[in-house]
């Protein structure tokens, strides 16, 4: 066991090749203790392969991995007993009950019986499956299975949780509940690595995100960071004001942090900015002799960043 490092996950030049196909290409990924890190990217970007290498389920072709300071290829058992993994579309044994499924996991983890039963009861309670604990999993909905997957992670009492597309195929209500679980885990100081296509959800729970593209980390940082990098300006401020159009537009343009001001019809203006400029915009409108009717802000949107980034990448390649 290495000393408690700041980074829970650390990869250096991590590479995985399947024949000629490079699934993960010299990846450098660092996840800090206690943070929720979102991994984004199109299908085939190497997200799942990276996760499998973190768990020691696939050996890297080249490069280094450290998970909780341990090398998963050399010490897979230590890593796997400290890390909870929720695969995409998690499966359980349909003919067993929820409790029996968890008992099997507890046994595989070598938990003493009393302790295992106690943790199973707690976990089922926490994910809201206590009332169906003794029903066969075959009768469970997709959302309930996913919650059972979370319960399985909880009985391991992990230091790190890795989730691969956890909300795929869930209905909106179940997704929302699931995001609450992630927030609960975060409150318990558990580090979480989350891979997802659903950008809105990633944005809702993640502290930092990494954008994977063709096995590489194309972009990394907080959503605000990415917005600055990709969009130039992440915030949009909408102003509705009456008065001299040119004067207002000029005043808004003069604001620090505003990169573009457009007039969008009937006394409305849209400002592209690097931060939330509402107070400054209000002041500017009034100083320009205008009457302010409404102010609204749209925060940087991961969806937009994602779309713009891949448009640029493809554009760059086509050229």
């Amino acid at each position: 066991m290495g000393k408690q490092s700041e980074f829970v996950i650390e990869t250096r030049q991590l590479t995985k090749k399947y024949g000629d196909f490079v699934a993960v290409d010299k990846l450098n990924l660092r996840v800090r203790r206690g943070e929720v890190f979102g991994v984004l990217g199109p299908n085939g970007a190497g997200k799942t392969t990276t996760i499998l290498m973190l768990l020691g389920l696939t050996d890297p072709t080249e490069g280094d991995v450290r998970v909780l300071g341990l090398d998963p290829t050399r010490r897979p058992l230590s890593v796997k007993s400290r890390v909870g993994y929720l695969p995409d579309q998690v499966g359980f044994y349909d003919e067993l009950t929820a409790r029996e499924n968890l008992i099997y996991t507890a046994k595989l983890n070598g938990l003493p019986r009393q302790e295992a039963y106690r943790r199973i009861d707690e976990a089922l309670e926490q994910v809201g499956l206590a009332h169906v604990a003794d029903q066969r999993v075959g009768t469970f909905s997709r959302g309930m299975r996913q919650r059972l997957g979370v319960a399985e992670i909880l009985i391991k009492q992990p230091q790190l949780v890795i989730m691969d597309e956890p909300t795929q195929g869930l209905d909106p209500e179940a997704s929302r509940e699931f995001l609450d679980f992630i927030r609960q885990l975060k409150q318990q100081k558990i580090t979480i690595l989350l891979s997802s296509h659903l950008l809105y959800q990633v944005q809702a729970v993640c502290d930092r995100v990494g954008l994977f593209y063709r096995g590489r980390m194309a972009l990394e940082g907080t959503v605000q960071d990415l917005a600055k990098k990709v969009l130039g300006s992440g915030y949009r401020v909408f102003v509705e004001a009456r008065g001299d159009r040119d004067a207002i537009q000029k005043a808004l343009m003069a604001l620090e942090g505003a990169s573009e001001v457009r007039s969008v019809g009937n006394n409305r203006y849209e400002i592209a900015a690097t931060q939330d400029l509402r107070p400054e915009a209000a002041k500017a409108v009034i100083q320009a002799g205008g009457k302010l009717f409404s102010l609204a802000v749209e925060e940087p949107n991961l969806e937009e960043i994602y779309a713009r980034y891949f448009k640029e990448v493809e554009h760059g390649e086509a050229a």
């Binding site: 499998l52 768990l55 389920l57 897979p76 058992l77 230590s78 796997k80 007993s81 890390v83 993994y85 695969p87 579309q89 998690v90 499966g91 359980f92 044994y93 349909d94 996991t105 595989l108 983890n109 070598g110 997957g149 399985e152």
Partner: peptide, 14 residues
């Protein structure tokens, strides 16, 4: 097929 394999192998066993 039951999608239990990756979950099983993610437990501390070989």
């Amino acid at each position: 097929n039951r999608r239990t394999m990756s979950r099983l192998l993610a437990q501390p066993i070989y």
